[in-house]
């Protein structure tokens, strides 16, 4: 975001681990992705010191963007303190010595796995998603050659076949997460395995949304204020999960709730999946 300094981090690695050549390559892929919203740009994904499937795509995108003045937030399942979020945050603290935060409003870059923060994002913020499978058609069509052709020719009928099948069988669309969307009226895109609860937040979001799939070597993007529509039928419109319960900690009723088992006799309660949002609400209450 700002000029890179040549300051090497720990052990002589370059700032934010990746060498500048690689960062340039990734930035070019990001620019292309922003120019063609929802289109999956192939890129020369590098081996990272974290395993594939554990956020290597998101880490590479973040590493290519981050500058010394950035403030990074990392969440996994909505929480800052899950093990993998901690691990990735530590990675950037070590390799880039940047400031980190758990507060959504303070962050300039938020790397996420499986959630969009409950706090609305602001212009200038970047949300980096970790993506395990970038191809929304993959579950239906195994061949990459075929799916690329389908995207190129905008042949998306088969996506609706899947939704039709859900309704015929279950009376409703049964996809709960990684719910396919259409970006800017053109490309069908996998939003990564966020719950469909978060899908509406993607639409016309003022923040830049970037998606990195390391193992599959694809980057794609939703530029600020771009339309993101969840696929549905006119007579079976897209809808999000609702809970009858409220958060046991902050009392929120409008957030995505995680279910926590409290005993082995069916006892359970619900808490906000977004740990920062929940915390902020409690701080305000206490004041």
């Amino acid at each position: 975001m700002t000029d890179e300094s040549d300051t090497a981090g720990e052990n002589g690695y370059n700032f934010a681990y990746l060498d500048e050549q690689t960062k340039r390559m990734i930035r070019r892929a990001i620019l292309k992705a922003v120019a063609v919203p929802g289109y999956q740009v192939p890129f020369g994904s590098r081996e990272m010191p974290l395993p594939y499937g554990w956020g290597t795509g998101g880490i590479q995108v973040t590493a290519a963007l981050i500058g010394p003045d950035d403030v990074l937030k990392v969440i996994d399942q909505g929480a800052d303190d899950t093990t993998n979020a901690v691990s990735i945050r530590r990675f950037f603290e070590r390799t880039a010595a940047i400031a980190t935060t758990t507060r959504t409003v303070e962050a300039t870059i938020i790397q996420t796995r499986h959630r969009i923060p409950e706090t609305p994002l602001a212009p200038g913020q970047i949300l980096v998603y970790q993506v395990p499978q970038p191809e929304p058609l993959r579950r239906l069509v195994a061949s990459e050659v075929e799916t690329r052709t389908m995207h190129a020719l905008e042949e998306y009928g088969v996506m609706h076949v899947r939704l039709y099948e859900d309704i015929a069988r279950h009376g409703r669309i049964a996809t709960a997460y990684d719910y396919p969307v259409k970006v800017n009226g053109r490309y069908v895109m996998a939003p990564s395995p966020i719950p469909k609860f978060d899908n509406p937040k993607m639409d016309r979001n003022p923040a830049l949304q970037l998606f990195g799939a390391g193992r599959e070597k694809r980057i794609y993007a939703v530029p600020p204020h771009t339309s993101v529509k969840s696929l549905d039928f006119d007579d079976h419109p897209f809808e999000i999960e609702r809970w009858n319960e409220s958060c046991a900690l902050c009392g929120a009723t409008e957030t995505f709730l995680d279910e926590v088992l409290t005993d082995d006799a069916g006892g359970r309660l619900f808490v906000c999946s977004d740990s920062d949002y929940c915390h902020e609400r409690r701080v305000v209450e206490d004041d």
Binding site: Y156, V158, V161, Y164, R169, D232, D235
Partner: peptide
């Protein structure tokens, strides 16, 4: 299903009413 098989071409050309 049989229904989805028959409906696929319609959905491919933009039918969006289940």
């Amino acid at each position: 299903s049989a229904g989805a098989n028959v409906g696929e071409r319609l959905m491919a050309v933009g039918a969006r009413h289940y």
